[in-house]
């Protein structure tokens, strides 16, 4: 796989909440077609970094370039294009509770205002089929769905516009092992199929080991390690040793070696 084009370039990013500094001078580049995982302890600012990439939070300093465009000060048209080229899966799904499953996935397609109703219907059912949601659930309201189902519908919505860039915030949190394994397989096959670039925040070691190409470790306000997992685990840093060196970490890594 030719990994050359940078999709996201973060340079000199500093985040402050009041006097509390979250990130200090972070540089990070994400390349086309890779799955990059952001890991770090609680409160290390993983989700904040993700939200900055999404343009929901503006950092105190530094710049974020997404698909060649500046995230915070590009024109309205460019912003719109950016938003159609990236999909987001929020931690809690963030499905619109007043809309049915079908309408939730159809919403981004409707917003394009170029697709006819028949095409939208076909695309929505296709995306729902992709993430393994049966047709009978399409008319349900989000409140009637189980946690795993909400995640899958949210993923279908994130994929509705065939984005090049997919952001996943804790994609497997709250799913049982079988479901999260299914979810990992799903993301992996969708990545192959749709040539996605995926940025995900996760705590789940199994997910991390199973699908990430590179891992960025956030600790002490900066990225202390960046690279594939075999490289990461050789780095001597208290957080990394604690994260990968524990029982669960060793188990997950053993699985990696067996691959």
């Amino acid at each position: 796989m030719a990994i050359i084009d940078p999709v996201i370039e973060i340079t000199g990013l500093t985040t402050r909440f009041g006097s509390h500094i979250i990130h200090e001078n972070i540089d990070l580049t994400v390349y086309k077609g890779e799955i990059l995982a952001l890991v770090g302890g609680s409160g290390s600012g993983k989700t904040t970094l993700l939200r900055q990439m999404l343009g929901l939070v503006t950092p105190a300093q530094g710049s974020v370039r997404i698909l060649g465009a500046r995230r915070y000060d590009c024109g309205r048209e460019e912003q719109r294009k950016l938003r159609t080229r990236s999909g987001v899966l929020f931690q809690q799904g963030a499905l619109f509770s007043a809309l049915t499953v079908f309408e939730n996935v159809a919403l981004p397609l409707r917003e394009m205002r170029t697709l006819c109703e028949g095409t939208i219907r076909e695309l929505v059912m296709l995306k729902l089929g992709m993430v393994g949601v049966e047709a009978q659930h399409a008319r349900k309201m989000p409140a009637e769905l189980s946690g795993g189902m909400v995640k899958r519908v949210a993923l279908a919505r994130a994929l509705a516009l065939d984005p090049e860039l997919l952001f996943l915030d804790e994609p497997t949190a709250g799913l049982d092992p079988a479901l999260s394994e299914g979810f990992v397989d799903l993301v992996r096959s969708l990545r192959e199929e749709l040539a996605l670039t995926v940025i995900m925040v996760t705590h789940d070691l199994d997910t991390l080991v199973a699908i990430s190409d590179r891992v960025a470790v956030l600790a002490d306000r900066r990225i202390v390690a960046l690279g594939p997992i075999p490289e990461i685990i050789t780095i001597d840093h208290p957080f990394i040793t604690a994260f990968f060196g524990g029982m669960r970490g060793r188990n997950a890594l053993r699985a990696l070696q067996q691959h």
């Binding site: 929505v124 059912m125 089929g129 008319r139 199929e193």
Partner: peptide
């Protein structure tokens, strides 16, 4: 081949049940 896969998926896709 990759387009083939997309259309295979489309063939399998089901339509929205009538309300």
């Amino acid at each position: 081949p990759e387009q083939e896969r997309m259309f295979l998926r489309l063939e399998k896709s089901v339509s929205l049940p009538e309300q």
